[in-house]
């Protein structure tokens, strides 16, 4: 059951990303280009997304458990640590260079172009580097 619902919700997310234009680098880079010709569209994506998502999280918190059974897996970390800051900074630079964040990077593989595939494989490589880094530093 939870795999079926995950698939359906992933589908909805994919349609939302396509409709919003988040998978089009010119659109995203136009938003990040505050000092050039600025396209404010993504503010509207975020505003609408936050409004609906906030209502959803409020309801989930009241219910306290998942509909398919089991707990809510909410992040437990609360500290703003160097990992968070350096990670966000690193991601932001990569996002600014490419105009593609992880969700759209996955989506764009579906269009079967070489650049989109290269970018996705590079993301996987970056994640693999993190796993090695994380396991090495955990032992120190």
């Amino acid at each position: 059951m939870k795999n079926l619902t995950a698939f359906a919700i992933g589908l909805l997310f994919g349609i939302g990303l396509l409709v919003s234009g988040m998978n089009q680098p010119p659109k995203v880079l136009g938003f990040l280009d505050l000092f050039g010709r600025w396209d404010p569209s993504l503010i509207f994506v975020m505003g609408a997304g936050l409004a609906v998502s906030a209502a959803g999280f409020a309801i989930a918190r009241m219910r306290g458990k998942a509909l398919v059974g089991g707990p809510l897996y909410l992040p437990e970390k609360t500290k703003i640590d160097p990992r968070l800051l350096v990670g966000a900074l690193t991601f932001g630079v990569g996002w600014g260079l490419s105009g593609v964040c992880p969700g759209p990077a996955i989506i764009n593989v579906g269009f079967a172009t070489l650049p989109a595939t290269i970018f996705f494989v590079a993301i996987l490589a970056g994640m693999a580097v993190y796993e090695i880094f994380n396991r090495t530093t955990a032992r120190l």
Binding site: R83, L84, L85, V86, G87, A88, L89, T90, F91, G92, V93, G94, W95, L97, S98, V100, C101, P102, A105, I118, F119, F120, V121, A122, I123, L124, A125, G126, M127, A128, V129, Y130, E131, F133, N134
Partner: peptide, 12 residues
């Protein structure tokens, strides 16, 4: 960029 996005999102 992809390596930065992959590493950065996991670290952060």
């Amino acid at each position: 960029a992809g390596i930065l996005v992959g590493f950065g999102t996991r670290l952060g």
